[in-house]
Amino acid sequence: MELEGQWWKGQLAGDIYQALRYKEIKLPSYKGQSPQLNLRRYFADLIAIVSNRYRLCPTARHLAVYLLDLFMDRYDITVQQLHMVALSCLLLASKFEEREDRVPKLETLNSLGCMSSMNLVLTKQGLLHMELLLLETFQWNLYLPTAAHFIEYYLSIAVNEADLHDGWPMACLEKTVLYMTKYADYFLEVSLQGKLKFCCCFT
């Protein structure tokens, strides 16, 4: 998303955060009305597996799944086409979020074991066609913030020395930050598997 590494630590962190929040408010709505909604978990997992294989950043992985969700929401797609769509979403997201040298290459994608098990061979022409269709669907706008774009900023301000635990100062700030980061990363990955629902109860 054209953001410098560790932007949340820089002087412009507040401005960048506000820009992300502004874009988040205007995100396309996800209705969960795809005829293939029951396959969503499988393809989200496929994106996560391939993303981990190439060690792509969390923002690329989350953007890819979000693009997949929106695209599935709008079209009735065959299962075979969904494989192409999912991988094209990941390629587009990685091109948007990663350095060029980290974007998966066609040859290495086709060499993955999961590709042969799916009896799927990607072609340059097929990928370009699908990427173009995706870009046209999203009106060439991939600036779509996800939870992964905010997590580091929130973690940077989530814990400070003045915080208390059971009314007492924290014994070890570093350990608290470590656990906070661990669980935030866990829930961030869990959120890829489906839309999390949070319920607030007031008494």
Rank of each mutant, 00 (worst) to 15 (best):
E4A: 10
E4M: 06
W7T: 07
L12P: 09
D15M: 12
D15T: 13
I16K: 09
A19G: 11
L20F: 07
E24R: 08
K31F: 12
L37M: 13
F43C: 07
F43R: 01
I47N: 00
A48L: 14
V50F: 01
V50K: 00
P58S: 05
P58E: 07
A64H: 03
V65T: 06
M72L: 09
D76N: 12
Q81K: 15
Q81T: 13
V85R: 04
L91R: 07
D101Q: 08
V103P: 00
P104S: 04
P104V: 00
L106I: 02
N110I: 01
S111F: 05
S111C: 06
S111G: 06
M115H: 03
S116W: 09
S117Y: 10
L122K: 04
Q125S: 12
Q125G: 09
L127H: 05
L128Q: 14
L128S: 15
L134F: 03
E136S: 12
T137E: 15
T137V: 03
Q139H: 11
Q139N: 13
Q139G: 08
Y143Q: 14
P145N: 00
A147Q: 12
A148W: 00
I151A: 09
Y153H: 03
Y153C: 05
I157K: 05
V159P: 08
V159N: 07
N160K: 05
A162L: 10
L164G: 02
H165M: 15
D166H: 09
P169V: 03
M170N: 07
C172A: 12
M180Y: 13
T181D: 14
K182E: 13
E189T: 07
E189K: 05
E189C: 07
V190M: 12
G194C: 07
K195V: 15
K197L: 15
F198H: 12
C199V: 14
